[in-house]
Design a protein around this nucleic acid. Structure first.
Length: 651
RNA sequence: GCUGAUGUAGCUCAGUCGGUAGAGCACUUCCUUGGUAAGGAAGAGGUCACCGGUUCAAGUCCGGUCAUCAGCUCCA
């Protein structure tokens, strides 16, 4: 072993230390503050405990809370502290899994005690106390067998034993982290001691299934988030408050966009006039764009004979998340069953096969805003983003194999165009592939899947998309490219999607006549840039906080006369804008201008036109922009011009 | 569907020990005619989610149902 080791810091500087130096020593040699903030260290890119000796030359980086890895380690350690606190307060609790998550951590606990919200405060206090005790966290490595022994005798942790015997059955050596009397099976790394934990908030408590398996026991999951300082926690809580104000369910009601009524049924949104404007503008926008790209519109019924969905495979695969079939009995006692349309595709396939297709006719791009109904589990319903009745901007592209990759690219391009226009920049793209270990979930043969996934990848590469791969996320008929965005609370939702399908053409025996005069199988692309109009607008509401761009705003201009003298002129301005197709409202109540402005601001009307005696005499208007204030005085022509430009540019 | 929490006026919420329902905003009417985020007064508005139980008496206590929320599971 070398007596000295050379470590290279992220800035490229190399330093020499005695072998066995720890990350903490190095941090201390760099600065006191860094040593204080240090949580862990990466050695040649691998995260490691701060107090582990470094015995060879290495690239190292000190990890603090500001580092993404730092948060993960911090929160993971916080989950251990949570477990220790629970163990001290509620003896007999057994621990399942306790990872760091994107925003904090959780621990799954099996306990004879039923945790309540008041317990959470108690546990928080105990966690902070454990922090003040500054308990050293010690890593111990041992053979797997010995760990099983440890968790069956020294500690009674049946869940850890199960993990050791099952998930880790091929791992010969495992590590245990000791923290006072508490110990947990964990690969680490962890904080050197518990003193870094200065602020903690246990946010909620819910049920989870052990190992995510509904047939196993339910556990109590406690969620929380922790920080090295009280100030950071306050900031986090304030950000959460802000996010809540953006909640589309809250804004949807406040701005009169949509409603949900028990009298209609849960999960069945009703579009109010203002929300309907937003939706209709978006639909027009996409229809126009699709017209340019060679799509042809169709309309199909809202229900269909159940045989149709048996044939497509939707019925057998998804019967548990559909409304039950409607059964119709005719005079002769013959029964027919109809299903509320869960999908538009089968109808479109029938349109395809309604006439003989030539290879020259392809690609055929059928498009429809098709409303579908799915009986989502009651606990899943969530405003507009998870509903039981919703409208897909659904198209099916029927093409030849030589056109496929081009067509996928076109669909990706359209989806990106839609997202860019609406200002979504933080999108995750996922290639959703099949899970080879779960063949029962999918239709079609292995060859077909291989080809489909190859095509999808090729298109994604060609379009220069940065993507993540989601194994097991494919639909039953083919792989997908999914566009995923987050809501105000950070939850992920799939919006746009492009899907390749070699299975349905077989099921529906679709064909076209090739140049050789023989029938050939087309390939289908399912695609929906918005995904669901409901979900998209739900996320859009949160994305914009209800401040829609001018072209989408339900009311674009509020005309606000200051006194009654100005009413007549104000009405003429309203009529002028109205004739030009601007959505305009005139406020002639006998309220002061300040109040009228306030109400227009609160209802997020993009422009206010303020009219007093001066404007009336000069034939001008005073313009005010929502959230910005006074823009200045201008003529009516200038006003029209300004509004038109902004609407056309969709800015 | 599962676990937990919540459910009072259109909205946000108060309602003590079980004793006959309250505020602010919004709404209606009247007064007020004003210059860039809340003028004043009066009025109207309730099957306390629903069903049942305990009680002389239930918004309040108990049981059930439904809905909403958080998470889990699921998502063509």
């Amino acid at each position: 072993m070398n007596a000295q080791v050379t470590v290279t810091l992220p800035d490229g500087e190399s330093r020499s230390f005695p072998a066995g130096v720890t990350g903490y020593d190095i941090a201390q040699s760099i600065g006191k503050k860094l040593a204080k903030d240090a949580l862990a260290v990466t050695v040649n890119g691998t995260a490691t405990d701060l107090n582990l000796p470094i015995t060879e030359d290495a690239r190292i980086e000190i990890v603090t809370f500001d580092h993404p890895l730092g948060k993960e380690i911090f929160w993971h350690s916080a989950s251990h502290i949570l477990a220790q606190a629970v163990e001290e307060l509620f003896p007999g609790s057994r621990f399942g899994a306790g990872p760091a998550i994107e925003q904090g951590f959780y621990y799954d606990i099996a306990s004879p005690h039923r945790f309540t919200e008041t317990d959470l405060e108690l546990i928080e206090q105990k966690m902070l106390e454990i922090g003040r005790r500054a308990i050293t966290v010690r890593r111990e490595e041992m053979p797997r067998e010995q760990a099983i022994e440890f968790f069956s005798t020294k500690r009674e942790d049946p869940y850890k034993v199960e993990i050791l015997q099952d998930t880790l059955k091929d791992t010969p050596r495992v590590s245990i982290y000791h923290q006072g009397d508490f110990a947990d099976l964990c690969s680490g790394p962890h904080l050197p001691d518990t003193s870094k934990l200065r602020a903690v908030k246990l946010t909620n408590i819910s049920a989870s299934f052990w190992r995510g398996d509904p047939s196993r026991e339910t556990m109590q999951r406690i969620y929380g988030i922790a920080f090295p300082s009280e100030k950071l926690l306050k900031k986090h809580l304030a950000a959460l408050e802000e996010a809540k104000k953006r909640d589309h369910r809250k804004l949807g009601a406040e701005l009169g966009l949509f409603m949900l009524s028990q009298d209609v049924g849960s999960g069945l949104p009703i579009w109010l006039p203002k929300g309907a404007i937003v939706r209709s503008e978006l639909e027009t926008f996409l229809k126009e764009e699709q017209k340019k790209r060679g799509y042809v519109p169709v309309y199909t019924p809202h229900i269909g004979n159940i045989e149709l969905y048996k044939r497509s495979g939707h019925y057998p695969y998804y019967s548990d998340s559909q409304f039950p079939p409607l059964t119709y009995t005719d005079d002769l006692g013959r029964e027919e069953q109809y299903l509320l349309k869960p999908m538009n595709c089968p109808h479109h396939h029938l349109i395809y096969s309604s006439e003989l297709r030539s290879y020259r006719d392809l690609p055929l791009r059928l498009t429809e805003f098709g409303t579908v109904y799915r009986h989502e589990q009651s606990g899943e319903l969530n405003g507009l983003v998870r509903a039981r009745g919703f409208t897909q901007d659904d198209s099916h592209i029927y093409c030849r194999p030589d056109q496929l990759v081009d067509e996928i690219c076109n669909a990706i391009d359209l989806t990106r165009f839609v997202f860019a226009t609406l200002g979504f920049d933080d999108i995750q793209v996922r290639l959703s592939l099949h899970d080879p270990d779960n063949p029962g979930k999918y239709g079609g043969t292995g060859d077909v899947w291989e080809q489909a996934e190859k095509d999808v990848r090729e298109a994604a590469e060609r379009m220069n998309i940065e993507y993540v791969v989601g194994i097991g996320e494919a639909s039953f008929y083919g792989p997908k490219i999914d566009f995923i965005v987050r809501d105000a609370l950070g939850r992920k939702w799939q919006l746009g999607t492009v899907q390749v399908d070699y299975v349905m053409p077989e099921r529906f025996d679709l064909s076209y006549i090739g140049p050789d005069g023989q029938p050939h199988r087309p390939i289908i692309i399912h695609r929906a840039p918005f995904g669901s109009m409901e979900r998209f607008i739900g996320v859009l509401i949160e994305h914009t906080a209800g401040n829609f761009p001018l072209w989408l705003a339900p009311v674009q201009v509020a005309v606000l006369p200051i006194t009654e003298d100005a009413h007549e002129y104000a009405a003429s301005v309203r009529d002028l804008l109205h004739r030009e197709g601007i959505r305009v409202k005139l406020d002639t109540r006998s309220e002061k201008i300040g109040k009228k402005i306030r109400e227009a601001e609160v209802s997020k009307v993009p422009y206010m036109v303020i009219i007093g005696q001066k404007e009336r005499e000069d034939g001008t208007v005073s313009l005010r922009r929502h959230r910005q204030g006074d823009v200045g005085t201008m003529t009516l022509d200038q006003l029209k011009e300004k509004l038109f430009t902004e609407i056309t540019e969709k800015s």
